[in-house]
Design a binder for these strands. Structure first.
Length: 889
RNA sequence: GCGAGGGUAGCCAAGCCUGGAAACGGCGGCGGACUCAAGAUCCGCUCCCGUAGGGGUCCAAGGGUUCAAAUCCCUUCCCUCGCACCA
């Protein structure tokens, strides 16, 4: 359905109003933030890769940050809400090759088109701070920072066994290899192992801090923190050396040094140096290693081969057989271990398969639940800590103590190991930041001096390999140190380098003598709200944290250790329960929704559908419902503005009721917006609009109250449906732009919840009675508030410690009510818990304001008595919080 | 296996941190108002029983703490995600 531009019906046409207000905002520069702003609210969405198209995931992501940024701005905050382009990367090269263009032009076209789509969505960015990573003005700072990292000793060039993607023709970081089958994250080709000289950033120097600081990132989702913990993979243990006669010492790493006396064999991973050495002399070993290293065969878990050699256990002096076994991983610990089948499950399985003795050296400690008699290590490994046995002079030591002793005793070293590897940033591709180094035959790899930066990319050429390798003229340079002939480095940087500090460039995007202004960045950082996909849980977010810490350590930042204070991972937009994907062909195009319904409808629907981190189903009904609501708001305002709604200047109970609901809605919406529960906030606004319509239908509304309701509505929807909000604001003849107005003041009404509950309960009770008593046509509804003395009983009862009746009956005033007071007190004592309640006057006022709802619902007269005026028999049933009700037919 | 997050009425889903009303909302279903009619909109109902606001049974299952448990504690089962022959 498409909304017509029939103004008589009071409907808006999004095709008119959306571009109109977008232009107005732009002309008024409403999203600009001055450099001299102090500690603004920094709201950031992960910048997009420049594919050329916004998909629903983007739209959801950017709607969340835009709504929050607009909300913060309305509340009087200075807001930094920028946007930029993650615009280096392989797809642009592929596209260029397919389309006979070059990556730069292709990328700039994509940016152009995506910027237009964003503008059509009404996202309010400070475009003067736009950052484009593929421009020399940006990537020169990657190079400059590379030099700083290198000065700090955080850059290394080393021969690495690397992940090579044959299809992308480049190496990949460990983080970019996915799944058990080890495939490329971009093209899903199986990754190959190669040995190449590569540039790495030594992120492992920061492993400990990157891990520890996660504990304090309370604004981050638990799963992301956990994923990073897993990825860093800290392990505390000890290394000791075992002598293999004829071959020298072999270092092992273990977390269970206490079990060393129970070692009955020794295992090497197939890739271990000694295993390789032994393989040269022994065909069986060579063959086993060959099989283990081939990808096509999955070796049995207990597979392994005896080498014929023995290792000397430093604890016992015993010689134990050395095996090469596939279950020992090369990149865990040292790739070598002593095996204790009695206390490790894998060692146990291996020992059973190879008929190796099993020697128990740990018994359950006395305080442990297990009975030492029940432990049979021949059957199953006992893997808990305990007390040492069969360990010579050390028998009786606790595991933990033993570990400490043995490090000294056997000349070992206490070590902390990490799974995290250094970050390999070399890429053998064109479309990235050239690594600013020169390979000189005399001086080795020399950094390009800062004053010679940027090293700009040469012309792109179509080739199967790395275009930089063929740019002979570009490659050939003088060595910056000795002036002799030298060659440029042709590797470019992983694009995750670009995104590791882009949030700092937004602070001072035009600065030409530094990547960012240290003082300003230190004030504006950290990002207050960072929103993006869960796919960046490890890579981008870990690298950005690493960069931030390094920048702080080299004084480019002042006291900023973490980049992102609060992190939200938006959920997926599903279609009939399925992830939208091009390959499945179940994609809803944001462009189509914007054309058919308008940006506001799409934004409003998405934000009402679920909380940001939850998945939700895209439904046409939901879209229509959002559209309808916005049209309703608009037409209600249009009617009012056109004078079609008759109003008075007199307030009454109904007006008071509506007034309080307006205040309550503001309070709810504000709190929910703050907590990122936009759907709850919007529900409250829907309820308010519905109430205003009922008000209008029931009576002649008070002009001030009604208008306040409409103006408040305009403000409350402004973060999510800004174009409609402006349109409505304009029709209400308000000053300026709603986008630049002030959020309504939050007045918390003391006891509002009790009032609301009283009204709801009373209305429900009336319905119940009418239903159960089968009253067809109620003439008159009488409501009577409980007398003061009952309220007093409740007050006393709540304060009473146990003896409720006694406490109540000690009260002089209440004794006058004799039996009745005692009975009521007994009831209360039996109830166990006593709810809060309003004063009698407050109850009467509250019910008085709400009678119109009852009149309207049952089309009957409604009378609210206070205790003095109420008929005696009616009053008997009234309790605080629970008025008596009588219905006349 | 380890770790994290979950399991709420026909479906989706809030509440749980900070215990106190058969449990917000939405969808679907039922009834009603408006209408020539449909749509839209509005008002109710939607665990079971009930001719005056009552009673019963409820938040994966079982146990515990408490005057009081969806909410706190323990155990078990199931789901989702991350890591994993991790020494």
């Amino acid at each position: 359905m498409t909304a017509g531009s029939d103004l008589d019906s009071g409907e808006f046409d999004h095709r008119d109003i959306e571009p109109k207000w977008q232009r107005t905002w732009e002309d008024a520069d409403v999203f600009r933030i001055d450099d001299d702003a102090t500690d603004p609210s920094y709201v950031l969405a992960m910048f997009p890769y420049t594919s050329g198209n916004l998909h629903m995931g983007h739209v959801r992501n950017y709607t969340i940050t835009d709504a929050y940024a607009r909300f913060e701005r309305l509340r009087g905050e200075d807001v930094l809400h920028p946007m930029g382009w993650d615009s280096f990367g392989l797809p642009a090269e592929n596209a260029a090759n397919e389309r006979d263009t070059n990556p730069r032009e292709w990328t700039l076209d994509c940016i152009e088109s995506m910027r237009e789509q964003m503008q059509a969505m009404g996202f309010g960015y400070d475009w003067e701070r736009e950052v484009t990573t593929c421009e020399p003005e940006y990537y020169q700072w990657n190079q400059w920072l590379f030099n700083r990292f290198r000065e700090e000793g955080l850059v290394d060039r080393r021969a690495e066994e690397i992940n090579w993607c044959p299809s992308c023709e480049t190496v990949l970081a460990d983080e970019q290899v996915e799944g058990d089958d080890e495939v490329c994250w971009r093209c899903e080709s199986p990754v190959e192992a190669r040995e190449l000289d590569q540039w790495v950033l030594t992120i492992t120097d920061y492993a400990e801090e990157l891990l520890d600081a996660l504990d304090d990132l309370e604004g981050w989702p638990a799963n992301v923190r956990e994923m990073q913990r897993n990825w860093i993979g800290r392990q505390e243990g000890d290394s000791v050396e075992f002598e293999v006669p004829g071959y020298g010492p072999v270092e092992i790493f273990t977390t269970r040094l206490d079990t060393i006396h129970g070692a009955t064999f020794f295992s090497l991973s197939p890739g271990h140096e000694l295993a390789q050495e032994l393989a040269e002399e022994n065909d069986d070993i060579a063959e086993y290693i060959d099989r283990a290293e081939r990808d096509d065969e999955e070796l049995d878990e207990t597979s392994g081969v005896f080498t014929g050699e023995y290792a000397v256990n430093p604890a016992t002096g015993e010689e134990i057989p050395v095996y090469v076994a596939d279950y020992v991983l090369e990149d865990v610990g040292t790739g070598a271990l002593y095996a204790v089948p009695a206390h490790d499950e894998r060692d146990h399985a291996f020992a059973e398969a190879h008929d190796i003795p099993i020697q128990q050296v740990i018994e359950p400690a006395p305080e442990a639940e297990a009975d030492p008699e029940d432990i049979d290590v021949q059957e199953n490994a006992y893997t808990e800590d305990g007390v040492l046995v069969h360990s010579g002079e050390f028998d009786g030591l606790a595991s933990a103590e033993a570990r400490e002793r043995f490090v000294e005793e056997f000349d070992g070293e206490h070590r902390i190991e990490f799974r995290l590897r250094d970050w390999l940033i070399s890429r053998q591709r064109y479309w990235g930041t050239p690594i600013p180094a020169v390979d000189c035959p005399e001086c080795g790899y020399v950094s390009v001096p800062d004053e010679d930066l940027p090293v700009e990319l040469p012309e792109f050429i179509h080739t199967t390999g790395n275009p930089l390798d063929e740019a002979e003229e570009w490659k050939s340079v003088e060595c910056p140190d000795c002036g002799g002939p030298a060659t440029r480095e042709t590797d470019t940087m992983d694009t995750f380098v670009d995104s590791s500090w882009y949030f700092l460039r937004y602070v001072s995007p035009a600065l030409d003598d530094a990547p960012f202004d240290t003082e300003q960045a230190s004030d504006w950082m950290p990002v207050d709200e960072y929103v993006g996909g869960i796919e960046h849980a490890v890579m981008h977010l870990l690298y950005a944290r690493f960069f931030t810490k390094v920048l702080d350590d080299v004084d480019l930042l002042d006291g900023v250790r973490e980049p992102f204070e609060n992190l939200t991972n938006q959920g997926m937009v599903l279609l009939e329960g399925d992830k939208m994907s091009k390959s499945k062909g179940n994609v809803v195009s944001p462009q189509r929704i914007v054309e058919d319904y308008g940006a506001d409808t799409a934004r409003f629907f998405m934000m009402s559908a679920a909380q940001p981190e939850k998945d939700f189903d895209w439904t046409e009904e939901g879209v229509q419902s959002a559209h309808q609501f916005l049209q309703n708001v608009h037409s209600l305002v249009a009617e009012y503005a056109a004078g079609a709604i008759e109003t008075t200047q007199e307030t009454d109970d109904v007006a008071d009721y509506v007034d309080r609901e307006i205040a309550a809605t503001v309070a709810t919406a504000t709190e929910e917006f703050e907590d990122f529960r936009f759907n709850h906030a919007l529900q409250a606004v829907r309820d308010l609009v519905s109430l205003l319509r009922q008000y209008r239908e029931f009576t002649t509304p008070d002009a001030d109250t009604f208008e306040r309701g409409l103006v408040t509505t305009a403000k409350l929807i402004a973060p999510v449906a800004p174009h409609v909000a402006e349109e409505v604001w304009d029709r209400l003849d308000c000053d300026g732009l709603v986008t630049e107005s002030e959020w309504p003041a939050v007045d918390t009404l003391e006891g509002y919840d009790l009032e609301r509950r009283l009204v709801e309960n009373t209305r429900e009770d009336i319905r119940d009675i009418i239903d159960v008593a089968d009253i067809a046509d109620p003439e008159r509804v009488e409501i009577a508030v409980a007398p003061d003395w009952k309220h007093r009983v409740v007050d006393l009862a709540r304060g009473a410690d146990g003896d409720v009746v006694g406490t109540v009956m000690q009260d002089e005033q209440l004794r006058q009510h004799g039996e009745a007071a005692a009975d009521f007190a007994k009831d209360l004592a039996g109830a166990g818990h006593i709810d809060d309640h309003l004063s009698p006057e407050r109850e009467r006022e509250t019910l008085g304001r709400a009678t119109w709802l009852i009149e309207r619902e049952f089309d009957s007269e409604v009378v609210v008595f206070d205790a003095e005026d109420a008929p005696e028999d009616l009053l008997a049933h009234a309790e605080p919080g629970r008025p008596a009700i009588n219905i006349e037919e």
